[in-house]
């Protein structure tokens, strides 16, 4: 439909969505960029233009560097693990195994629960000596471990919880994709005597590629976006060993009330997400065809 009247109708239909999206996504993104060049206004002292000072400070800030490093480890650790497990789960649930609806339920349950609720339950599991994990490990001769209080295990503990929480969610996407694959393919392969591993490697996995890429991007976004468990389990500690980028932004903005610096930190996060967006829309979409 074209014509002036239709143009007006279209824009009227779009108006509420455009106004709200602009107000809470685009304008704040631009404002964050502008504010990152100013100092934080304090009391009667207004914000002053500081150029790239905030960014210079950032490079010399050990907590920021720790957050960036932790987030990289967190993403590299959780994303492939969650994707691998979710694919395995989908294959299990999609097979002819008995009790598959129970298995599907078990895998998917963590997804429905609030992260804040499960994190509080895991807080107990990680309790040194008394918690479930130490109780299970004790008979095997493991010493009491302060999982969340030791810099060498704190981040890993968060990652285990994240994989447990997310794998079932990604399983759903694989399950949907697996159900699109024609069963005649596997019939033909078994007639040809192809092993299941060979069939998976040469047929199933390539056919699932678009799903894998979709899940990959979403998993990476989530690794930068979800910090509920950090708030509950470690609060970034001990000694910033488990702080993530968004958690540090949250701390800077709402614990230290340093909004100028928080703006500069947010710009780093936005740049990372923009790079992801570019990869998804610019590169992958051209190679992978979605329906």
């Amino acid at each position: 439909m074209t014509g002036a009247k239709n143009q007006i109708t279209a824009w009227l239909l779009l108006l509420p969505a455009v106004v709200l999206l602009a107000a809470f996504t685009h304008v704040p993104a631009v404002m964050t960029f502008i504010n990152s060049f100013y100092s934080t206004p304090r009391g009667t002292r207004p914000a002053k233009f500081k150029g790239v000072d905030q960014y210079a400070n950032m490079l010399a800030d050990p907590v920021f560097l720790a957050a960036l490093k932790n987030n990289a480890i967190y993403a590299i650790g959780t994303v492939p693990a969650a994707i691998g497990l979710s694919l395995l789960m989908a294959l299990i649930v999609n097979s002819s195994i008995r009790g598959k609806s129970l298995l599907r339920m078990s895998f998917f349950l963590p997804t429905v629960l609030p992260m804040i609720a499960v994190a509080n339950i895991w807080l107990f599991f990680y309790t040194p000596g008394y918690g479930l994990i130490d109780r299970v490990l004790a008979p095997f001769g493991f010493a009491e471990t302060n999982w969340l209080g030791d810099p060498s295990t704190a981040l890993g503990s968060l990652m285990v919880l994240a994989v447990w929480k997310e794998a079932g969610f990604f399983m759903i996407f694989y399950l949907a994709a697996l159900q699109q694959i024609s069963p005649s393919l596997s019939e033909a392969a078994s007639l040809e005597g192809a092993s299941r591993w060979y069939f998976f490697r040469r047929v199933t996995f390539p056919l699932l590629m678009p799903t894998t890429l979709f899940v990959l991007i979403n998993a990476i976004i989530n690794s930068f976006r979800l910090i509920d468990h950090v708030i509950v389990l470690t609060r970034g500690g001990p000694d910033n060993a488990s702080t993530l980028l968004l958690y540090y932004i949250y701390q800077t903005g709402f614990r230290f009330w340093d909004t100028g610096y928080a703006a500069a930190l947010t710009m780093v996060l936005l740049a990372l997400l923009a790079a992801l967006a570019f990869i998804q829309f610019g590169v992958l979409d051209r190679k992978v065809h979605y329906k």
Partner: peptide
């Protein structure tokens, strides 16, 4: 406009929490 809308899939409101709080 459609591309600008889709941008929110990447940049969710909680990422911009400091600025949104100010708003």
């Amino acid at each position: 406009v459609f591309m600008l809308v889709l941008l929110q899939l990447m940049i969710m409101p909680e990422v911009l929490l400091v600025e949104n709080y100010r708003t």
